[in-house]
Design a binder for these strands. Structure first.
Lengths: 141, 141
DNA sequence: GTATATGCAAACCGTTTGCATGGCT
DNA sequence: AGCCATGCAAACGGTTTGCATATAC
């Protein structure tokens, strides 16, 4: 599961943000970007993954680390559910699918989403971020 | 502040959803739709408004009532901030401005936002809601 | 009279924090 | 050595809930 390549990806990811490669950060980084794909996690979910992977990291550290990754620009917090925070390894504006049934968050293929123009922003303000969340429900048919 | 017209609007709003017009619900409904405009509130904010208006409603009842209004289809919850819930008297899909500085939530003029097409929804799922949140920051210039 | 709404205080739960210990450079 | 990260447990804050009382129908 934790191949040398995955480890290298995690290491580079941390180095890129000048974050000290501690055992915990390396473990979490590898879980997050080890396979080269984007990932959407909750703190609880990542904590569980770290346990399953055999590297246990305390929940508080998972929270602190996710915050550190966000502060460093490696991740972004995504607000889709009032009761949990989600964190995304992809840091540009892009639409999400949120499955309300099981709480899964995934990237929506952006190609087909087209925002022609944004509403005019009030005087004195600038756009920090545009979030598009497409909430899905299992079809009842 | 609480004109007969505002009261009538609140009363009709409740009747429309078959909700018993208790003193508390009437008070909150009037605060929410009394002036005929859409409103975006947090539970704390509405609770404060009810105190200022002279009709005190307990915080627990504000929460229960907002939930009841949402269940009845009179309002919609808007998820923009992980630490608070916002409630909107407008119940159709429409874009929001969220001022990160002061936590204010407003409707964004939808006319200029154009979503050409939505990404293809995964098999077996249907779109429950599409949220567009434009996060604004005060210009630093 | 009966079902439902309200209010209080306590429970809840995800997240943050204080502080002592341990690790990276 | 010095600074920063970690872990635990306690604190925190918004929200929900249990239960006794009050109100609408």
């Amino acid at each position: 599961m934790m191949t040398p390549q995955a480890l290298e990806r995690g290491t580079k990811w941390l180095a890129q943000a000048d974050l000290r490669p501690t055992r915990q950060r390396l473990s979490l980084a590898t879980l997050l970007v080890g396979d080269g794909h984007n990932r959407h996690v909750t703190a609880e979910g990542l904590h569980a993954s770290s346990h399953i992977a055999g590297d246990s990291v305390s929940l508080a550290t998972v929270y602190n680390t996710l915050r550190a990754f966000c502060d460093a620009g490696l991740m972004r917090e995504v607000t889709v559910d009032g009761s949990r925070s989600y964190f995304d390894t992809r840091v540009d504006d892009h639409p999400h699918f949120f499955m309300e049934d099981d709480g899964a968050l995934t990237d929506a293929p952006a190609a087909e989403l087209e925002i022609k123009s944004l509403p005019e922003v009030p005087e004195g303000y600038e756009v920090a971020k545009v979030d598009v969340v497409i909430r899905l429900r299992r079809k009842t048919s």
